[in-house]
């Protein structure tokens, strides 16, 4: 299998039918992601980056083009892709353990004790062993999002899809979780596609940043290879020249070339 073309988004177009006629959200999007690569999609809100992620998740069907994951066409949602939603989407009537178990149980045809073992491992990975028996409303926003990440990773997906995973968190918690995500992704060598609108987050976490033009009919406006060595250290990077350059490139794209008229 060609690991350079692990996830292939080929000529994707997405048109929504609305009451006011057709709305073209995405137009001719081509993107390939290598196995083990961390790719961020960045753009102003409404540019269709979440739509693109949902297409990969299979929650939406493209009106044009197709998506291949490990040489198989994506025809609908499935557990070979782990999705972390922006607002955690934990089921409030299940404990953390049961929320993760629900996913694990669906994916692995194993005996119960093995499934439980996997669930424990996934929650331990995000440092939530102590909170397994708690219900989502008993947790902080950051902890909930960790459970969401554990749920997505526990099923050992081919690709991890993150939809602004830290958008709803405060800055300190966000930094914490970013570091943790970096560590986890480093350990599991996961392939990741992340939607974000945070330039620092994109530069810190990604191997490549895909910059999208403003919608409607959003397209890929540019790409930046983030050639910062790993493991990356937030504080060390803050003083790094290369980091600043990369950051400036993305900022320049977002705030000069694609400046959004005040809505």
């Amino acid at each position: 299998m060609d690991s350079d073309r692990y996830l292939c988004i080929e000529g994707i177009g997405m048109t929504f039918e609305t009451r006011k006629g057709d709305f073209v959200a995405l137009e001719r999007i081509d993107l390939t992601v290598k196995k083990g690569e961390f790719v961020s999609l960045i753009g102003h809100s409404g540019c269709g980056k979440s739509t693109l992620l949902n297409l990969v998740a299979g929650l939406l069907r493209p009106t044009e083009g197709g998506i291949l994951l490990a040489e198989r066409e994506i025809a609908g949602p499935g557990p070979d892709r782990g999705v972390v939603f922006q607002n955690h989407s934990l089921l409030p009537w299940l404990t953390c353990f049961d929320n993760v178990y629900l996913a694990v149980e669906r994916v692995f045809p194993e005996k119960k004790n093995l499934l439980k073992e996997r669930t424990h491992t996934a929650l331990a990975m995000v440092g939530l062993t102590h909170a397994e028996a708690k219900y989502p409303h008993e947790l902080s926003g950051g902890m909930k999002q960790r459970v969401g990440i554990a749920r997505a990773l526990a099923i050992e997906p081919k690709v991890l899809l993150l939809d602004e995973p830290f958008g709803a968190l405060d800055a300190l918690t966000r930094a914490n979780l970013q570091d943790e995500l970096m560590r986890i992704v480093g350990n599991t060598k996961a392939t990741v596609l992340m939607v974000t609108h945070d330039v620092d987050e994109a530069v810190l976490l990604s191997d490549r940043i895909v910059m999208m033009t403003n919608g409607p009919a959003a397209r890929i406006g540019g790409m930046v290879e983030v050639d910062l060595p790993r493991p990356r250290e937030r504080l060390a990077l803050a003083g790094s020249r290369r980091y600043m350059e990369l950051r400036t490139t993305v900022m320049d794209f977002l705030y000069r070339k694609q400046l959004k008229q005040a809505a």
Partner: peptide, 21 residues
């Protein structure tokens, strides 16, 4: 919430499982 149903769709849960959980 659509989020909950999306969880079900992403995991491809069976109709019965969707109903009960």
């Amino acid at each position: 919430p659509q989020d909950y149903l999306n969880v079900a769709r992403v995991l491809n849960l069976s109709e019965w499982k969707v109903f009960t959980t």
